[in-house]
Design a protein around this nucleic acid. Structure first.
Length: 965
RNA sequence: GCGAGGGUAGCCGAGCCUGGCCAAAGGCGGCGGAUUCAAGAUCCGCUCCCGCAGGGGUCCAUGGGUUCGAAUCCCAUCCCUCGCACCA
């Protein structure tokens, strides 16, 4: 019995022990530090740097392991490979995390303590943003990556808050500005009216999902205190302007008369503040109750018609302008409200002094027609739904439905002139622009729901001056389009997503008011936001370890110009910059970037934009492989709910190789994967089995020279060549699942058959198994580097990763042998079927090989492959008088053979004429006999066989007749 | 609504591009057997229905179509997931 730790070659699989040993060797030898050498090819693999605002979970583990597999694969193929890593700390998430920690926010504390297991005594280290980041970098990310065995060059590590990195970003933004790709403008932001500053979604307590809406303001005019003033009415449906029959204000609401951008406006008090925030110059001149406006008439800027202002308590002065227009023909809400106002017409007239005849006289004015509704769609909708009053909750739904229908199916009436007859969906935008230019319309932003800041303050949409990246610039779009066209987009269908994103992107506001990162070079009040400071940093990796020796103040604009654009780009190029340029030239471009698929429509597209602009096509990204999401036990992971699997824990539980193998094998990189502990456990069992079997091979005596191979050895070696070819091809396509499935599980199936077929103790078998193991270990090394290296070293004295990637040996590949073996398998299965269905335990199995004339028929069919025609074959065959003797049997056989040829792969069919079936069956008589514990007798149908059950006649080529007794 | 992806046996999941080797890989779960003191370990077999001769029937969301032949190609319908921004 072998005791643990005894050092015998037959030791049990102990991943913790094996893995720690290799980690140490890699660390101490600097195995993955990549420096320019003289290899024929370089491979530069990148992945978005992690954002350490929390710990690392199993989804991250996969994101970094998939590139590692590719890196290891390319390394074994002889490339110089660079796989670097850094840390993204830009912006507010880390700052926000620290704030929530300081406030003892329960969700944050649960995430830190329960999900990530941060000990109480460490919490004090997390109280500054960089302290927080550093803690998770060191204790979670970096440690997790090392445990997983990622082949990263750690010398190049940096954070995006480093001074030198900022110099690089500074150069990037100065360059973009010089090229006119940055633009100053106004932009809507979330603004806390209490703190008097912009806030991010992380700071929002209520209404996190609220979106900005752009309301169109219809500039109604009215007489107020003897002046002509504007009463702007907000709407999302500007095309209904011709259907306005009246307006509403809240009689008790506070309204103001204000000067807005030099004009006199009447709006709610809240609206005046919003206009102020949205970049307009607002001076409130007088405040009054809404009641004061009731009864006034306002003039429609488009039609010139006058309509009356009515009181309504449903008006929310804190929504939009607080002055509402009513379109009863097309808005069920308005329709019902109007009916109710008309019911109370006398009261309203008496209370507010409105002309008593005005209210009953209001009639809905249709502005469009739509199939399925009459002239007044809102009336039909309301009546059909049986809604009688405004407090019926169904009214909301009726309104939504009608809006939807009218948007997609409503055609404007003749009064719309040039817009008449068009569908709302197609015409709204043009209509709005037309009237905006004519001065009839204006615009404002508003949230879709109420938004409250963490401080309790009201959050409003504010317009703020900002800098934009001009992603909608036509020339830039064209260049990035070329970059997309050249890209190896994996999977291929993502290419369209990049194109689509480019079409859809407008200007991108690239700065924020606060957060970590690089200040805007020409205005240090602002910081460049995270998606904008992470577009070309892969270039920084190439020099990161050497730039640390350059004093920060030397990292000028010229320095980077010289580095990236060469000695001619500046007058007096710094020597160091030119030295670093060689590193950059050596590694760039990025060969492949691996990234989660949700970054396609921002980060990855930005990545392409900036490369396309700042670098030559030769340095544009060559490939992007997108990755799917991770589930845990079938559910989404969530650190706040504690539903996460941590890499360090699962590596402790199962071993890094098991974790890696599961992550790589359970789905292709771009598919979603599901971390299920039962499946992971079964992966571990499979690796255990593999280890034990491998150790048996390691311990076996193997002849130095290859002994004479049995047929089955040649079969297994042929399968091995196919595996080498398939794994190589799959890995070139980043198909980690297919590749690992082929070399591991599929090959285990071949070995199962091999063990069943032959005595594995023969010298020939021992030699074969050893050769197979050695090759498989090399093929497995990218996936399970610890185990593969360990076993390969036991076997050959050299780690698998240092051995070259296997090549297909054509001498060991034989289609004929493989086809013969399928005949053996077919025979075995047929006998087993018969045994099964008859329930007999045979003493004798008789096998009858088809007569020669049947072979002739098969060959006649084969002559007309791949799509033989029954008539033609029959014509040819029947020319032979001997055939005619067999009569109808020939016809049946031709039909059967035609089906057989059609259904068999062409490369197999062509092998068949060279195969002597009888010989094949005779050579496996011993094996088949053992399988069924019976004597096996092989006969030829036309050689006067012993045929007690009269079966021989049923034999057809490659389907022998069988009789069991 | 727009854009992308998807619906395959108890479950997960391959196959679909390039139609026939597909009753449809593999895993999990379940059943039976072997080994074992025992086992969540390993090994062998079974796991749509019928069948005492290698066979037959039905099947890949639904309904049509193309084809000698459809899980695979085309059309329509239903359902599900993700993204739609200034947030990493």
């Amino acid at each position: 019995m072998v005791r643990p730790g005894e050092g015998s070659a037959t030791m049990d699989y102990d991943p913790q022990d094996v893995e720690e040993k290799w980690r140490r060797r890699w660390r101490e030898s600097g195995r993955y530090e990549a420096d320019p050498g003289d290899a024929d090819e370089t491979t530069f693999v990148t992945v978005p740097y992690p954002y350490p605002n929390g710990g690392m979970h199993i989804g991250h583990a996969r994101s970094y392991t998939v590139p590692d597999v590719y890196a290891r694969f390319r390394r074994q193929r002889g490339d110089e490979v660079l796989y670097p890593m850094a840390w993204h700390v830009t912006g507010t998430p880390i700052v926000g995390a620290v704030e929530r920690l300081r406030e003892n926010d329960p969700e944050q504390m649960a995430s830190l303590k329960d999900a990530f297991g941060v000990p109480e005594e460490d919490l004090k280290d997390l109280e500054t943003p960089m302290g927080f980041a550093r803690y998770f970098i060191e204790n979670y990310y970096k440690q997790g990556m090392e445990q997983l065995g990622l082949s990263i060059d750690w010398r190049r590590e940096f954070t995006t808050n480093d001074d030198r990195y900022s110099k690089f970003i500074t150069w990037q933004y100065e360059t973009l500005r010089e090229r006119g790709l940055l633009e100053k403008g106004m932009h809507p932001v979330n603004y806390c009216t209490n703190e008097r500053q912009p806030v991010t979604t992380h700071d929002i307590l209520e209404g996190e999902d609220a979106e900005f809406q752009e309301f169109t303001l219809i500039r109604f005019s009215m007489d107020h205190d003897g002046d002509e003033v504007v009463a702007p009415m907000a709407t999302l449906r500007p095309e209904t302007v011709r259907g306005v029959t009246n307006a509403y204000v809240h009689p008790d609401g506070e309204y103001v008369r204000a000067s807005v951008d030099g004009e006199s406006w009447v709006v709610s008090a809240e609206a005046a503040e919003k206009f102020d925030l949205q970049g307009r110059t607002v001076e409130v001149e007088r405040r009054f109750a809404g009641e004061e406006l009731v009864g006034a008439s306002v003039t429609n800027p488009v039609t010139g018609d006058e309509v009356v202002v009515l009181p309504a308590t449903f008006v929310d002065p804190d929504n939009a302008t607080g002055v509402v227009m009513s379109v009863p023909a097309h808005s069920p809400d308005d329709y019902v409200a109007l009916r109710e106002a008309q019911d109370r017409a006398d009261d309203i007239a008496a209370e507010y002094g409105v002309d008593p005849d005005a209210i009953p006289a209001i009639e809905p004015v249709p502005i469009l027609e739509i199939e399925g509704y009459g002239g007044i769609p809102a009336r039909d909708a309301v009546e059909e739904a049986g809604v009688e009053s405004s407090d019926n909750p169904a009214l909301h739904e009726v309104t939504e439905d009608l809006y939807q229908d009218e948007f997609h199916g409503g055609r404007l009436l003749d009064s719309y002139g040039e817009f008449a007859g068009e569908v709302v969906e197609d015409v709204r935008e043009r209509f709005r622009e037309h009237h905006r230019e004519a001065g009839h319309f204006d615009a404002m932003h508003e949230f879709t729901e109420e938004v409250v800041c963490r401080c309790g303050g009201d959050v409003e949409v504010a317009q703020q001056e900002t800098w934009f990246l001009r992603y909608n610039d036509e020339a830039w779009r064209e260049t990035v389009g070329e970059a997309i066209a050249r890209l190896d987009a994996v999977p291929e269908n993502t290419r369209e997503q990049y194109t689509h994103t480019v079409d859809w992107l407008e200007e991108w506001p690239c700065i924020r008011n606060y957060g970590l990162g690089t200040r805007l070079p020409w205005d240090d009040e602002f910081v460049i936001e995270p998606l904008s400071d992470s577009t070309i940093y892969m270039a920084y990796y190439t020099v990161a370890h050497r730039i640390d020796e350059v004093p920060v103040e030397e990292l000028t604009h010229d320095f980077f110009d010289a580095l990236f654009y060469g000695p001619d780009a500046v007058d007096d190029p710094p020597e160091t910059a030119l030295e670093l340029r060689e590193e950059w030239d050596h590694w760039y471009p990025v060969d492949v970037r691996f990234s989660a698929n949700d970054l396609v429509n921002n980060h990855l597209t930005f990545f392409l934009y900036h490369h396309a602009e700042l670098f030559d096509p030769a340095n544009w990204p060559e490939g992007i492989t997108v990755m799917g999401m991770g589930l845990l036990e079938g559910r989404k992971m969530s650190s706040s709910k504690g539903h996460v699997a941590l890499p360090s824990e699962v590596v402790d539980d199962y071993g890094a190789d098991t974790v890696r193998f599961f992550l790589l094998n359970s789905a292709e990189p771009w598919q979603d994967f599901d971390w299920r502990s039962d499946a992971v456990r079964s992966t571990r069992n499979a690796l255990d089995r593999f280890w034990n079997r491998s150790m048996d091979v390691v311990d076996a005596d193997v002849p130095a020279e290859r002994p004479d191979p049995a047929g089955i050895d040649r079969w297994l070696l042929s399968k091995l060549q196919a595996a080498v070819r398939d794994v190589t091809e799959s890995l070139e396509n980043y198909e980690t699942r297919t590749a690992s499935q082929t070399v591991f599980y599929d090959f285990e199936e071949h070995l199962r058959w091999y063990r069943r077929r032959t005595d594995t103790d023969r010298p020939g078998a021992r030699w074969t198994l050893r050769t197979v193991l050695e090759m498989r270990l090399r093929l497995l090394a990218p996936f399970v580097p610890f185990m593969a290296n360990e076993l390969h070293e036991h076997l050959t004295g050299q780690p698998a990763e240092d051995a070259p990637w296997p090549a297909v040996d054509p001498a060991l590949e034989s289609r004929t042998v493989e086809v013969e073996e399928t005949l053996v398998r077919d025979l075995t299965e047929d006998v087993a079927d018969i045994v099964d269905v008859t329930g007999t335990d045979p003493d004798v199995v008789r096998v009858y090989v088809a007569a020669d004339w049947k072979r002739t028929v098969f060959e006649a069919v084969l002559d007309r492959a791949p799509d033989p025609d029954q008539g033609a074959v029959m014509g040819a065959v029947m020319e032979d008088p001997e055939m005619r003797e067999h009569g109808d049997a020939v016809n049946d056989l031709v039909g059967e053979m035609i089906d057989f040829v059609r259904e068999t792969p062409e490369e197999d069919v062509t092998e068949l004429p060279g195969i002597d079936e009888g010989e094949v069956y005779e050579s496996v008589a011993g094996f088949v006999g053992r399988e069924f514990d019976a004597d096996v007798e092989v006969y030829r149908e036309d050689a006067d066989p012993h045929d007690p059950a009269d079966r021989a006649g049923e034999a057809v080529p490659f389907r022998p007749a069988i009789h069991i007794e």
